[in-house]
Amino acid sequence: MSETPAADTKVVIFFKQTGDAPILKQNKVKIDGQERFSKLVDFLRKKLGRDQVFVYLKEAFSPALDERIAVLHEAFGVDGRLVVNYALTPAWG
């Protein structure tokens, strides 16, 4: 489905809050697909000013932190972007 051209390895990430987590002013970012998922978690942690952020895909599960974002995008992206859900307390346990 989402055929990323080899020239452009950037992936569009859409952050979606859940529970009582604040909505980010900047809820859409582009990131190099070769980066690890942990980079997005660090990003959220910084933006939210929290040590603890719970991060999910498909409103369901937490992927391995060291998975490449391109792989996750390919597997779980919809309409060319990867929706990343975040919460301050565990959701979808």
Partner: peptide, 19 residues
């Protein structure tokens, strides 16, 4: 490290775990 993000995020100094 195949660590689910939630579990890792729950530990404080977690950046040390991921390269």
């Amino acid at each position: 490290l195949t660590v689910p993000a939630t579990l890792l995020a729950a530990s404080s100094g977690s950046t040390t775990l991921v390269g």
